[in-house]
């Protein structure tokens, strides 16, 4: 039976009725109507469902929705303001770090979480940080370029 659940999503408190066996991903997509996080494998392997919990990237398909009430959850919908994309989103656009786009919300959430704690990464650090995100189109080269460029821009803006 669905149970009441209050989650902090993108700075808003959301009250929902959620099945006890729902993953955070199912809760975000089916109950909160936030479909940016994608269901690729539903096994934690592809990273398309990545969101931030208290700033840390997690595969939301492996999180029990009801266990997440303590955390600040950020989804791809929470990054851009009305006026502007986030620096990471903008860098993906400017560097062509995307093709079909299915994996991109997850990649951008991984990159965003990573750059918050590692503002000055090497390319090797970036590749390690996105090791849990599968992309079958880009070959990752421009994705890595975009994340390095976003890091440089965010450092310059400090």
């Amino acid at each position: 039976m669905k149970q009441p659940l209050q989650l902090q999503i993108n700075g808003e408190s959301r009250q929902m009725l959620v099945e006890p066996f729902y993953s955070l991903l199912d809760c975000l997509r089916d109950e909160a109507q936030l479909t940016g996080a994608k269901k690729g494998c539903d096994e934690g392997d592809c990273g398309a469902c990545t969101v931030l919990m208290d700033g840390q990237p997690v595969t939301s398909c492996l999180v029990l929705a009801h266990s997440a009430h303590h955390a600040d959850i950020t989804t791809i919908e929470g990054l851009a303001s009305v006026a502007a994309l986030s620096p990471v989103q903008r860098a993906f656009v400017e560097h062509g770090g995307l093709q079909c786009g299915f994996c991109i919300p997850g990649l951008i959430m991984s990159a965003t979480g990573f750059l918050q704690s590692n503002p000055n990464p090497t390319e090797e650090d970036v590749r390690f940080a996105i090791g849990g995100n599968l992309c079958r189109c880009t070959g990752y080269a421009r994705v890595v370029e975009a994340i390095m460029a976003a890091a440089a821009e965010m450092r310059a803006a400090q």
């Binding site: 934690g44 990273g47 997690v58 595969t59 991984s110 979480g113 090791g131 849990g132 995100n133």
Partner: peptide, 9 residues
């Protein structure tokens, strides 16, 4: 171990 998203959980 796995990737960072799984290590965080």
């Amino acid at each position: 171990f796995a990737g960072v998203q799984v290590r965080n959980l």
